[in-house]
């Protein structure tokens, strides 16, 4: 098992600061019939197949309050598994995860929307799913609708929404959760260009407010703009933990034959890397 510590410190696992997430885990997956299954049980028994691989292995990192932590890697390398572990959807086979602070996990937008219910009803249902209470939902309701720009369609069943509108509503609910830690999984490809910019601005604004952000993305430019720290994993194993520049260089070298990603492309919103110079958010 390989431990990597960012910035050379080890966290005190007992009492992390508010807004801090500490991860230290392994996750096992099993190969059966050529398909990748996650192992059924952590107990050793006859059900455990002999051939197995770790979906995530030896990954260890700390995210401190206010940091923006990017996780990059190829498809199937375990990025989403890490996020699901942090969001408490999966449980690690061993290792430990400590998270202090209110978590809002955007693994999928509009999860739990019911097609037959109206936008308004779905806002309340979705907010409740994400852990909101009634008073805050009512307090934020107008802002959620305003952000989604769906005022005219709010009393229409969401089955009549376009997929972009669906996503917009989902994002609007999720972004108003006021979390200490925001977990985002490759969902920023939402709606049209204007709304995408709005979403990124909203995340930037949260970052400026000191919200800890953990993000998975294949958009190198976005990761470059947003993240202060990066974890690069490959086949479930952390490849290299470094300051983001070194890592991106490595990635570029590694994938230069297989992908068309270029580091020398101008980053999103044309700015110097590392610092957020996006305009102040509209909301």
């Amino acid at each position: 098992m390989r431990y990597v510590t960012i910035y050379g410190f080890r966290a005190s696992y007992q009492f992390p600061e508010r807004g801090q997430a500490v991860c230290l885990y392994q996750r096992k997956a099993a190969i059966r019939d050529g398909n990748v299954h996650q192992i059924f049980s952590r107990r050793k028994g006859p059900k455990q197949p002999k051939e197995s691989l770790w979906a995530v292995r030896g990954v260890s990192f700390d995210v401190l309050p206010g940091q923006c932590f990017g996780i990059v890697g190829r498809n199937g390398s375990g990025k989403s598994t890490i996020l699901k572990l942090m969001a408490r959807i999966l449980r690690p086979n061993n290792g430990r995860i400590v998270i202090n602070g209110r978590v809002s996990a955007l693994l999928e937008l509009g999860a739990g929307f019911h097609p037959d219910l109206t936008g308004r009803e779905n806002i309340f249902l979705n907010a409740a799913l994400l852990g909101f209470d009634e008073a805050s939902t009512r307090a934020y309701y107008d802002r959620i609708v305003e952000f989604s720009e769906l005022e005219e369609f709010i009393d229409m069943p969401v089955k009549h929404y376009s997929s972009g509108m669906y996503m917009r509503l989902g994002f609007s609910v999720a972004i108003h959760m006021q979390p200490d830690i925001l977990i985002v999984d490759e969902i920023l490809a939402v709606g049209d260009q204007a709304f995408q910019t709005k979403c990124i601005n909203a995340i930037m604004a949260m970052k400026d407010q000191g919200v800890t952000i953990i993000i998975v993305s294949h958009n190198i430019n976005l990761v470059r703009t947003l993240c202060t720290h990066i974890l690069w994993i490959d086949k479930g194993i952390p490849k290299r933990m470094d300051r983001w520049m070194r890592l991106l260089q490595n990635m570029w070298r590694m994938h230069t034959n297989s992908s068309r990603v270029s580091l020398f492309q101008r980053p999103l919103h044309a700015q110097a890397p590392g610092k957020s110079r996006l305009p102040a958010p509209a909301f």
């Binding site: 408490r88 959807i89 996990a105 852990g131």
Partner: peptide
């Protein structure tokens, strides 16, 4: 029947 929620949200 609630697989999509269970796979994406904790509650």
């Amino acid at each position: 029947g609630s697989a999509p929620i269970i796979k994406k949200v904790y509650f």
